[in-house]
């Protein structure tokens, strides 16, 4: 990959890449199948290091792992609604991130869960928080010759819940009009911390820090959640296109932020 630079692309699940090559979004000389690299297939959890999610691990391995699904329900949500079952056999969270679409269903969950992207390249290895990974539609911090190897997600804190909800006009097989991924940590009767990330409302997935931070110390009530949802709407910078208008998307950020926070709070209450 280093040799071909911009003329090379990594192939993991291929469910985005092969379509992009067919419509000539990328003109490449080399496609490198990375599925045989052991590190990229790692899916492991430890209470000390948290989750290591290899970039070539397909979605089904995430959502069929009951242990991991229980630890990171938001990640489970994302993994189980990307494409249909056929797509999930091949597509993975890593590819979803590396492809850097603003509408990516996995990225809000990764941001909400505090994931970092582990990158390897000709100049060595580096790690980047996922909220800083995407730089524009289809663009990321990956330099020519660099490869996303894995993602690390810290172990969940006590009383933590996470949820990803997207809105699509059908019930499957659509691109998110808006997606919202959140995590909430409870401390008794108040919110210890919350992270909110949005899909499809800007050139990149958006980390709505103000909305999340506002919840710190607040009671986990519908009222708090409604106010956080209003704050999240301010973070959205959507465009109008065939999938939705600016007004519809901002409205949906409010609706989905409310719903995902309420779900995450419920999950946090049920969590150990």
């Amino acid at each position: 990959m280093a040799e071909k630079g911009a003329k090379a692309r990594a192939l993991a699940g291929g469910t985005d890449l092969l379509v992009q090559l067919r419509v000539k979004r990328y003109i490449v000389d080399r496609v490198v199948d990375v599925k045989h690299i052991a590190e990229m297939n790692e899916l492991s959890y430890s209470d000390s290091k948290g989750l290591v999610l290899g970039a070539a691990v397909p979605c089904y391995r995430v959502y069929e792992d009951k242990h991991i699904s229980a630890k990171y329900p938001g990640l489970y949500d994302s993994a189980s609604l990307i494409g249909g079952i056929q797509i999930q056999t091949r597509a993975g969270i890593g590819g979803n991130l590396a492809n850097a679409a603003p509408s990516a269903d996995a990225i809000p969950s990764l941001i909400a869960l505090g994931a970092t992207a582990n990158i390897a390249g000709p100049k060595g290895k580096r790690s980047v928080p996922v909220e800083h990974f995407c730089t524009g539609p289809g663009k990321s911090v990956l330099q020519d010759g660099e490869l996303l190897v894995s993602m690390s997600i810290p172990p969940p804190q006590a009383k933590m819940g996470s949820t990803y909800i997207r809105f699509i006009p059908r019930n499957e097989m659509d691109i998110a009009v808006v997606g919202v991924g959140v995590s909430v940590v409870l401390n008794g009767n108040s919110i210890k911390s919350a992270r909110i990330a949005l899909a499809s409302v800007g050139p990149t997935p958006i980390f709505a820090t103000e909305a999340g931070n506002w919840l710190t110390g607040k009671a986990p009530t519908e009222d708090s959640v409604m106010q956080a949802a209003e704050a999240a709407k301010k973070a959205a910078k959507p465009i109008t296109d065939m999938r939705g208008t600016i007004e519809q998307r901002i409205h949906l950020v409010g609706v989905l932020t409310k719903r995902s926070l309420l779900s995450a709070i419920t999950r946090a209450k049920e969590a150990r």
């Binding site: 006009p169 059908r170 019930n171 499957e172 659509d174 691109i175 065939m242």
Partner: peptide, 23 residues
């Protein structure tokens, strides 16, 4: 769905959105 430049923007099944069995 035509854009103002006269192009059908949703010329794939992904965005044309025919009903699936789940709908």
């Amino acid at each position: 769905f035509h854009t103002t430049d006269g192009v059908m923007a949703n010329s794939s099944w992904l965005d044309y959105r025919m009903p699936t069995s789940l709908d």
